[in-house]
C-alpha cells in the first residue's frame, strides 16, 4: 500500500467515525433526556419507556456502528491496498 492510499485511508477512517457519531450522539442524548423526564413524571410507565428507549438506542447506535465498521475496514482490511 503506497503512502497516499495509507494517508487517505487513515483520514477517511477518522472522518467516518467522527462525523458518523455526531448525529447519533445528539439523538441519544435527547432520547435519554426525554426518557428520564418521562420516568420521573410517570413512574408507573417505566417499563414501557425503557423498552422504547432500548429499541430507539439499538437503531440509533447502529449508525455509529456503520461508521465504526467502515473505519476499521479501512484501517485493518483495506480493499484498496494493492
Amino acid at each position: 500500500m503506497d503512502s497516499i492510499t495509507t494517508a487517505a485511508s487513515v483520514v477517511a477512517a477518522g472522518l467516518a467515525v467522527g462525523l458518523g457519531a455526531i448525529g447519533p450522539g445528539i439523538g441519544q442524548g435527547s432520547a435519554a433526556q426525554g426518557a428520564v423526564e418521562g420516568i420521573a413524571r410517570q413512574p408507573e410507565a417505566e417499563g414501557k419507556i425503557r423498552g422504547t428507549l432500548l429499541l430507539s438506542f439499538a437503531f440509533m447506535e447502529s449508525l455509529t456502528i456503520y461508521g465504526l465498521v467502515v473505519a476499521l475496514v479501512l484501517l485493518f482490511a483495506n480493499p484498496f491496498a494493492g
Partner: peptide, 9 residues
C-alpha cells in the same frame, strides 16, 4: 413496570 421491561428484554 420494571417486570414488564424484563419481559420485553
Amino acid at each position: 413496570s420494571l417486570d414488564e421491561y424484563v419481559h420485553f428484554q
